[in-house]
């Protein structure tokens, strides 16, 4: 075993890791925002809001991520006649896919806050959007934080899917170096260690948050 290959190729590998982080970061920020809207739609008392939100969530949750990525990378350009840039198309696919999962977390978070809190807020003249933003979501966020952190770890692991359309995220970068240097054992061990550290840290944070409750 010669771990020098890792040190020699560290800048290249770190660039890949940075891409993975970037994809995860933008996915989390965008899909969580979208998820809040979908979750509010899911609990709306208006059928024409509730049903589409429910269909969206269930449709996305019953498809594998890789298929959604295919859709946006290969099939949307066929329909529109224009190719999307790789990062953009993967990001859209990720946001659409993960917003469905985040939406369910947000929804159960909202429902964990008593409905009387909504009545109390509305009795003071707050509108429904103000009530959600200022009273319900902050309380819901606290309740759903462990589940959110866990989902963020899943998003990070999910970034490896971008490999299949040739995006140079961390795993892809690792495999390129592994092929070039013919040192797959060292490199894939290193990759496993990196994923382990990041995901274990995330899971630990989630556990600690859960205990704090």
């Amino acid at each position: 075993m010669d771990f020098n290959v890792i040190i020699d190729n560290l800048p290249f590998l770190m660039k890949g890791l940075f891409t993975s982080f970037q994809l995860a970061f933008f996915t989390i920020v965008l899909s969580l925002s979208l998820a809040c809207l979908i979750a509010i739609g899911r609990i709306s008392n208006k059928k024409y809001v509730r049903y589409p939100s429910a269909i969206f969530v269930n449709l996305l949750r019953s498809n594998p991520l890789i298929l959604i990525v295919f859709w946006f990378f290969f099939l949307v350009p066929l329909i529109t006649g224009r190719p999307l840039p790789a990062f953009g198309s993967v990001l859209i696919a990720f946001v659409v896919f993960f917003s469905a999962y985040f939406a369910e977390i947000v929804r159960s978070g909202i429902q964990s806050v008593g409905s009387m809190q909504i009545k109390a807020a509305q009795s003071t003249g707050l509108t429904y959007p103000q009530t959600m933003r200022l009273i319900i979501l902050p309380q819901a966020l606290k309740n759903m934080l462990p589940a959110l952190v866990t989902e963020c770890v899943i998003v990070f692991q999910g970034t490896t899917i971008a490999y299949i359309i040739g995006m140079r995220e961390f795993l892809h970068s690792t495999s390129l170096v592994a092929e070039r240097t013919i040192r797959p054992i060292e490199l894939y061990l290193f990759a496993a260690l990196v994923y382990l550290i990041i995901c274990f840290t995330g899971t630990r944070i989630a556990t600690l948050l859960e205990k704090k409750e």
Binding site: G114, M116, K119, A120, S123, T124, G125, T127, I135, P138
Partner: peptide, 20 residues
């Protein structure tokens, strides 16, 4: 309706203060 509600104070059995 929000405007009208702001002219009517309401007090609940379980207080319903905002815990955060």
């Amino acid at each position: 309706i929000s405007q009208i509600r702001s002219n009517i104070g309401m007090v609940f059995q379980h207080f319903e203060l905002y815990p955060h």
